[in-house]
Amino acid sequence: MNYLLAPIAALGRVIITFITETGSILILLFLALRNSLRRPYRFKLILEQMEFIGVNSMGIITLTGFFTGAVFALQTGKVFRLFNAEGYTGMVVGISLVRELAPVLTSLMVAARAGSAIAAKLGTMRVTHQIDALMVMAVDPVNYLIVPRFIATTLVMPVLTAYFDFIGILGSYVVGVVLLGINEGIFVYRIEWMVDVGDISHGLIKSSVFGALIAIISCHKGFYSGGGAEGVGRSTTEAVVLSSISIFVADYVITALVI
C-alpha cells in the first residue's frame, strides 16, 4: 500500500513546497515594496548596487549581445539569400532582438552573474549572523539589504537591455554589411522601418519585470539561506535556476498579454 501512496505523497510535498516558496517570495516582495517607500532612503547603496549589477555587467553583455546579433545575422542572411531577400536580414534581427532576445538574454546573464552573487552574499551574511547583527543594531535588514538590490536591478535592467539592443544590432551590421555584403542603406532602412518605439519599450518594460524577478528571487534565496557553506551553495544554484525559469515563464505571460 505504501508504495502506491508514495508517489502521491511525493507529489503533495512538491505542491506544498511550491506554494510555501511562492508565498514566501511574495511576502518578501511585499516587504521590499513597502520598505522602498519608507525612510531611510539608501541612495548610496542603490548606486553601489547599480554599479555592481549594471556597470560591472557591461563586459559580459557586450560579448553576448555582439555575438548574438552576429550569429543571428549570419543564419538569417544565408537563408534569405536563397530568396534574394537578404535585405530583410537587419529587419528580422532588429525586431527579434528588441522584442525578445535582448531582454531575455540580458536577464539570463544578469541572473547568472549578479543574481548568484546576491544570493551568495546574503546567504553568507545569514549563516555568519551578520543579518542578525543588523537586526540587533535596530537596522531593518529588508530596508538595508533587499530594497537597494531590488530597486537597482529593476532600474538597470532596461539600460542593459537597451545596450544589448545596440550592440546586437551592431554585431548583425558587421556580419550583414561587412561579411555578407548586404547593402548598408537597405540594412539600416529596414531596421528603421520595422522597429518602432513600441517594440523597444515592449522589450525594456519586460526587462524591468525580469530584473524585479531576479532581484527578489535571489534576495529570497540568500536571505533565507541556512545550513552553512553547503546551504549557501545550494541557495546560489537555486537562485539562478529559479530566476532563469521565472524569466521564461514571465516572458511568455507578458508577450501573450500584449499580443
Binding site: M125, H129, Q130, M137, A138
Partner: peptide, 17 residues
C-alpha cells in the same frame, strides 16, 4: 527602538566582512 538600548556581542563576532 527598544533594540537601540541593547548592544549584542555574537559568539562568532558577526562583523560585516
Amino acid at each position: 527602538q527598544v533594540r537601540k538600548k541593547f548592544g549584542y556581542l555574537f559568539q562568532d563576532s558577526a562583523l560585516f566582512d
